[in-house]
Amino acid sequence: MRRRLERVLLLLGLLALPLVLLRMPAVRAALASLVGYMREASVLGALLFLGVEVLALAITTPLWVMSGLAGYAYGFGKGLAIAWPGVTLGVCACFLFGRASLGKLLSSRAGESHFWRAVERAVRADGFKITFLLRVCFALPQNLGTYMLSATPLSLRDFAAGSFLGLLPATLFHVYVGASVDDVAKLLSGEAKAPGALGVWTLVLGFVVTLGALVVTSRIARRSLDKALAANAKAMEP
């Protein structure tokens, strides 16, 4: 019970850290300066943006922050051209970091979970599909999902491909919102909203897609586990 409580507190701390940082005036001022530099320095500004995005995602900063900044700095078209590959690069870097530094710890803890063993088997069989389905779940904390997947046998190729395609809908929306606001402070505070009915429909669609993706993912995991159990039972028959 104590270990479970420690894990929950660690999880809450990881999720709260970027939100606390975003409330600090110094951090907001630094991100506002980054936007100005991105507009002035062109290529160098885009490279700096990618570097900052990797660091931001490493501390579980929500994906909307950096994608929204790209939309605000460059507008929708150019912002998407930078944010989409940028967020893919960022999550891949976090995936490799998680595998190198946290993978053994996470996998040893997760090995105690019946559900996690099912996920591992599903990833071996359908790595790309599992990654894609998790990425289109708007409501899930995506960076924690990256670290979770880093503790599985998932290949970097399947992870990158699934993330690249699965993160497109969310990135489109985040860049659009960023390009629609007239004040970066609103964006960083989370006050920026999609205009008109788009925000409502996005919320509804996001909920439906998330629910559907979770159901499909659970079925794939369960089917993979059932196959493994059946194979083990057959192997033990005299």
Results as ranks from 00 to 15, higher is better:
G103A: 03
A125R: 12
S67H: 04
G98C: 08
I59F: 12
F132Y: 10
A125C: 11
G145S: 07
G77E: 09
S101L: 15
L134C: 13
L69R: 00
V136Y: 05
G127Q: 04
N143P: 05
L134V: 13
A100F: 09
N143D: 03
A73E: 01
R121A: 15
P85I: 02
G77W: 13
G111H: 11
H114I: 12
S155W: 14
S101D: 12
V119L: 13
G127T: 04
R135H: 05
K104S: 14
G68T: 00
F76A: 02
V65L: 00
Y74K: 00
A161C: 07
K104T: 15
L156N: 06
K129C: 10
R124E: 15
F132C: 04
V87W: 07
G145N: 09
F132D: 02
T152A: 10
L156P: 05
A93M: 02
F132G: 01
G71F: 02
L80I: 04
I82C: 01
F97Q: 06
T146M: 04
R109E: 14
A70P: 03
T61G: 06
A110G: 14
G127M: 05
G79I: 00
V65I: 04
T146F: 04
T131F: 12
S155H: 07
L134P: 08
Q142K: 08
W116A: 02
S67G: 04
